[in-house]
Every structure is written in C-alpha cells, then in structure tokens.
Nucleic acid binder design. Structure first.
Length: 476
DNA sequence: TTTTGAGTTGTTCGA
DNA sequence: GTCGAACAACTCAAA
C-alpha cells in the first residue's frame, strides 16, 4: 500500500502538497524523478536549466535522505511506461504529483492519469506552484484575464493562499527500494566545463532559496519599488530559478512577506507591494499559458503573424555574443552568458533591441533565453517576449521602443553595470559610456578603446532602426 | 448590447 | 534642463 511520489518542478520537501498527501495516506512513500526531455517537445530544458536541475536534484536527494528516504532517478522516453514499471516493482497503489501547466505536459499528464487509473491506482495531482490555479481566476463573464492589473486585482479578492506546509521530519521508506540511476547518468552536467560562472553565482536547492528570500526581505524589500530598476544594485530577490524548479513556492513567499512587513507595522500595504506584484506576474504568465496554449509558438494577437521580421544569422549572433555595439545591451547579454541570468530591466532593453532594432523574430530571442537562462520558464519567457514584441496580452502602444542609450543613462547612470560586464570600456568616461561612438578621439584614446577593434561599432543606428520598426508596425 | 474607463516598465518634440 | 503632450488609435473588463 505504498505511494509513488512523482517529483517534477516541485523539488522541495516543505510546502509540498503531494508529499503531504502521500504521508497522510499512510504507508511507504517512493519518491521518483523521471528525466523525460522528449515528452517536453520543443521545450525540453536548455543547457543552463540542466545544470541547475542536476544540482537541485542532488539537494532534494539529500533532503530525502535526512528523512530516512531517498530519490529514485530514472531516464524515460515515456512516463506512462516508466510509472507502470515502477508501480509494478514497488506494488504501489497510489501515484501523486504536483501539477505543471505547459501544454505538452498537461496532455502527457492526462495520459498518465488515465493509464494508471485504468491499472487500478489511485492517482491525484496537487497545486504546489501557484497561489491560485489558472482556472480559478475568472472575469465577471467567466473567461480568462488578458490584462495584468485586472487579473491581480481579482486574485487579491480571492481567499488568502493557505499557510505553507511544514517540512516532514520523516518519510517512510519502502521495505525494498527499486533500482535507480546515479544522478550523473542523466548527463545533465556539461561535459565541457562552461558552468563556472553559474556555480559561482547560484546555490540551487531549497536552502539556497530560503536564504535568498530572507536576505531579500531584510535588505532590499523596503526600497524595492524604486531600486529594482537599477541593474548594478543587488535590489531584486533573484528567486526566479528557485521558483521555476519549485525549490520554494509562492505561498512561502506570500506569507514570509506578510510576516516581514507586519512585523514592521506595515500590515496594510504588503499585499499591494511591488514585490508581490512580480509574483503576481508569474501567476499571470501561467494563467495565460494555460488559457492560450499556442502562445509559446504564435503571437496572441494574430495580426502580428504578418509582421515583416528579417531573420538573419549575423545580427542574431552579434546579439547573442554581446557584440551589438550598444553597451547596455551587450552588458546584459554577457551577464546572461556568464551567470545564466539577466536583470529584468536589461532583459527588456536587450529584447526590445533584438526585436525592434534588429527586426529579428521574438521567437529567436525566446529560444536563446531558453537555452541560457537558469530561470527559463515557458510561461514567463513567453509572456516576456510577446510583451516586448507587442504581440502579447496587453495593449501597450506599439510605438514603445526602448532607446538603449537613454535607458542605459537612466538606469545605469554611474556605468557600474556596463563596466562590470564590459571591462574593455571600463576606463571610458561616464559621459560616453553608453554611446562610445560619440566620444571624441582623445577620450577613446585615454580609455584605450578602439571602436571596431576593442569594442564593436554600433550594429545599427538606433534612430533609423526605430523609424524602420514604426513603419513596419504601422503597416500591420 | 453598448458604453466607458483604463491600461508595468517609452520616446521625442517643442515650449 | 524640465515638463507636458503627442505618438495612433487598440483591447479588455466591468458597468
């Protein structure tokens, strides 16, 4: 009478409803992770995500071992077959998991549910990942929301998310463990060691997530609404990869924020904080992906399918390498390559540049982010790119095109961010840092910058590119 | 059904 | 240097 507990994007033992239900059901629990990238279709985890996943599974295994259990790891082409096999090997009568919302996986999970139920197992799924399920948030007319502020307003009228569940002290093991691969056998760790930058930046796992949240609340929550826009400052929580892999859940963040703020006599304002609104954007992204499952591939606004993109490998490669000649864009792309993450303000600037200045399809940018971000998440990545391209779920005016120079001057006024990621410009005076092509020859000489040699000339002229994008958008 | 108010994140121009 | 208006009219959500 044991339970198969199928871990997916919920790599934690605290506030894990499927685990809690398995313990309530009684009997032994067999925790399982299936590596089945083929079932994720076009959106199997990219390189940076795989690096993170390996470390996160290792931490989860340790947490289970501390509780008298362990994590069974298998590689799978077909979850139905693998779970049937495991049920047979363990004699399990129950299969529990926490839900995912990617279209391919919703379909896969439905197949699993039907197949294992047909075999006589009790199969149940739970919500570990969201404050509210995508189908629980509905407009007055019963449909999905397409505007964030209305969505988030509605979310805050719903019953408060329940308090997070405590981590169990013990997870009862089966009499005999089924076979498991060593984690290394999944081949998630890159063979060439390109991940040193990731390793020096991040601590995957629930402990690392909890530490990030605590530090953020203590040091940056207060000034978040203003400071969050300055990429040189440690002013954001950096919880996104931890949230993606479910090492921490939004309920824990919600209640920790409430406790923190009400301890400081701000009980009335914490729910409306900009920080929780960002958690709300994550909810909104899942809401949209669930209700508009074609959006990872196709624009939500159909007429954008006719946009005259100019796919071209050369400008795309320059953008990917951080060699566009626009310092704030290049700094962001290099931060991404080095650390697997990019500050959100810079994501918008870099994405706007790719889409509107270089006229590359947003899907090309989404694909690059998918492979290089440790927080790559189909819901959030899709929303972000469609928002920038103007084809997504908000009616932002089409003439909103970021100017990479003024954005740099406004949000990196001392140049600390650009200097950190583009050391070849470090000695250039603040005045020219965000537009080195405007610098007088003597300023370039003094800073040992030779445009076209030590740092690229601008790939396009922004004023021209802006006009070109506006013309193209007008023709839609 | 129709109407109305409102909408994450911008840029440029001219007073 | 700063500020408000124009950009060009779209879509959603609720009344």
């Amino acid at each position: 009478m044991s339970t198969l507990l199928w871990f997916r994007l919920d790599l934690r033992v605290a506030d894990n409803p499927a685990l809690a239900a398995a313990l309530r059901a009684g009997g032994p629990v067999v925790p399982v992770y299936l590596w089945s990238p083929a079932e994720e279709g076009a959106w199997a985890p990219g390189g940076a995500s795989r690096w993170w996943l390996h470390a996160s599974l290792a931490r989860l295994g340790e947490a289970l071992e501390q509780r008298g259990s362990r994590l069974i790891v298998r590689s799978s082409e077909d979850a139905v077959a693998s779970l049937r096999e495991l049920a047979r090997e363990t004699g399990a009568t129950r299969l529990y998991w926490n839900r995912r919302y990617e279209p391919a996986l919703i379909a896969r999970d439905q197949r699993v549910k039907a197949a294992l139920r047909a075999q006589g197992l009790e199969v149940a799924s739970f919500n570990s990942a969201l404050l509210h399920e995508p189908w629980e948030v509905v407009t007055k007319s019963g449909g999905p929301f397409q505007v964030f502020s209305a969505f988030w307003r509605q979310c805050r009228t719903l019953p408060e998310p329940v308090e997070p569940l405590a981590a169990p002290g013990h997870v009862p093991p089966p009499a005999r463990w089924p076979g498991s691969l060593a984690l290394e056998a999944l081949g998630l760790v890159p063979r060439i060691d390109w991940a040193q930058g990731l390793a020096s930046t991040w601590s995957p796992g629930s402990a690392g997530a909890a530490r990030r949240l605590r530090e953020f609340l203590e040091t940056a929550f207060e000034g978040y609404s203003v400071e969050r826009d300055f990429p040189a400052a440690p002013s954001t929580s950096r919880l996104s990869p931890h949230l993606h892999f479910g090492e921490i859940g939004p309920r824990e963040i919600w209640h920790a924020t409430r406790r923190h703020a009400s301890g400081r006599g701000r009980y009335t304002s914490w729910r409306d904080s900009q920080f929780l609104a960002e958690v709300g954007w994550r909810e909104f992204a899942h809401h949209l992906l669930y209700h508009f499952p074609a959006t990872p591939e196709a624009p939500l606004r159909a007429r954008y399918a006719r946009f005259p993109w100019a796919p071209d490998a050369a400008p795309l490669a320059a953008w990917q390498r951080g060699a566009t000649g626009y310092p704030i864009v290049d700094a962001g792309m290099r931060e991404l390559w080095h650390s697997g993450w990019m500050h959100n303000r810079v994501r918008m600037i870099a994405a706007s540049f790719l889409v509107k200045d270089l006229l590359q399809p947003w899907s090309a940018g989404a694909r690059w982010f998918w492979d290089t971000l440790v927080d790559a998440d189909l819901a959030s990545n899709t929303l972000g790119w469609q928002w920038v391209a103007g084809s997504g779920a908000d009616a932002a005016p089409f003439f909103r095109i970021f100017n990479p120079v003024t954005q740099g001057q406004k949000f990196d006024p001392t140049g600390a961010y650009v200097r950190r990621w583009i050391p070849e410009l470090a000695a250039l005076d603040d005045v020219w840092l965000h537009e080195p092509w405007m610098a007088p020859p003597e300023a370039l000489r003094a800073a040992r910058v030779v445009l076209g040699r030590t740092y690229p000339e601008p790939l396009v002229d922004h004023a021209m590119a802006r006009q070109r994008a506006l013309e193209a958008l007008k023709r839609l």
